[in-house]
């Protein structure tokens, strides 16, 4: 028995040392990424007055540089296609933890999947895997049961297949990043029959996920407790605006939270030439929608002291 235990300990210790070799791939992995936004956040390099958070509907419908130029507020679009409210909450709390707090946050909500089960919007773990060398990121994955607590001690338990992908990463035609963050798409999706959906929208409260509601509330808490002006944004779809969804979000919103809804009377939003697909505008549409936002922001920010002062100087 003594021999067995000694051998086990020796084997475990040797393996413990051996596996540290894999730190190389953990170390190299973030350098190979092309979307470095999350790394900028945890390194404290994301200091902007206005931040846009959302899924692809935030990424492709709002141009942050346009807001920055119009309002002279440093702005950044931190939207990740395919991300959900839990991921947005994680981004916001990381942003607050490591950077100067933004003064305004535009949360772009997904009509009507924001609080519902959906395969198309998730917590974007794929954005966390390359950054597993950071304890903050690893702890988040442990908390979300993606990694075991062993990952605190073992590199191999922390590592992911993705960390071995040494290919140079490229942006797809859909995911362009510029200095102001995510950008809209300049072309229209092929082989699409665009028919404006005029059906009466529905929304079933029973389908909502409590975990998403909690994340939505926590998101608001973070904004309130950090004196951040939270504005909820409802971008257009190539269908009738869902008032039931809007009412639901309004009901869940705290009194200090305001909202911006696209101009539902604007015929542009019913014209397929302004859309990439049924859920996303293309560049020409995004410019118009961003102007909508700017117009309403001018009114809303007046009530928010810090930014108002800055804006008022113009």
């Amino acid at each position: 028995m003594k021999k067995f235990l000694i051998q086990i300990l020796l084997f475990s210790f040797t393996f413990f040392l051996f596996e540290k070799v894999f730190y190389v791939s953990l170390y190299v992995s973030p350098k190979l990424e092309i979307d470095k936004r999350l790394e900028y956040i945890i390194n404290g390099n994301m200091n902007k007055d206005l931040i846009v958070l959302g899924s692809s509907r935030g990424a492709r419908n709002i141009i942050a540089s346009q807001i920055e130029d119009s309002l002279n507020i440093s702005s950044y679009n931190l939207s990740y296609p395919g991300s959900d409210i839990e991921f947005h909450k994680f981004l916001l709390q990381s942003l607050i933890k490591y950077n100067e707090k933004p003064k305004i946050v535009l949360l772009v909500v997904d009509d009507n999947a924001e609080l519902l089960p959906s395969e198309s919007i998730n917590f974007r773990f794929d954005r966390l895997y390359p950054l597993a060398k950071y304890n903050y990121i690893n702890n988040e994955m442990i908390e979300r049961s993606k990694k075991s607590f062993l990952s605190k001690f073992f590199i191999l338990a922390r590592i992911n297949k993705r960390n071995f992908d040494i290919r140079e990463k490229h942006f797809s035609a859909l995911d362009t990043l510029k200095d102001c963050g995510s950008m809209p798409i300049s072309f229209q999706r092929e082989n699409r029959e665009f028919v404006f959906n005029n059906e009466k929208p529905s929304y079933d409260l029973d389908d909502e996920l409590s975990v998403k509601i909690m994340a939505f509330n926590k998101f608001q808490d973070l904004c309130i407790s950090n004196n951040i002006k939270l504005i909820i944004v409802y971008p257009p779809n190539f269908k009738k605006h869902n008032i039931l969804f809007e009412n639901r979000i309004e009901k869940l919103s705290y009194p200090k939270v305001s909202s911006i809804i696209h101009d539902t009377a604007n015929q542009v939003y019913k014209n397929k030439d302004y859309y990439y697909d049924e859920g996303h505008l293309k560049t020409n549409g995004a410019i118009i929608f961003t102007n909508d936002i700017i117009r309403q922001l001018k009114i809303k920010v007046r009530t928010h002291n810090n930014v108002y002062k800055k804006y008022a100087k113009q």
Binding site: F11, T14, F15, E19, L156, A157, I159, K161, F164
Partner: peptide
């Protein structure tokens, strides 16, 4: 050899 198996358990 055992290290290789253990490593694949983690990585793959």
């Amino acid at each position: 050899f055992y290290f290789i198996i253990l490593t694949t358990l983690f990585i793959f």
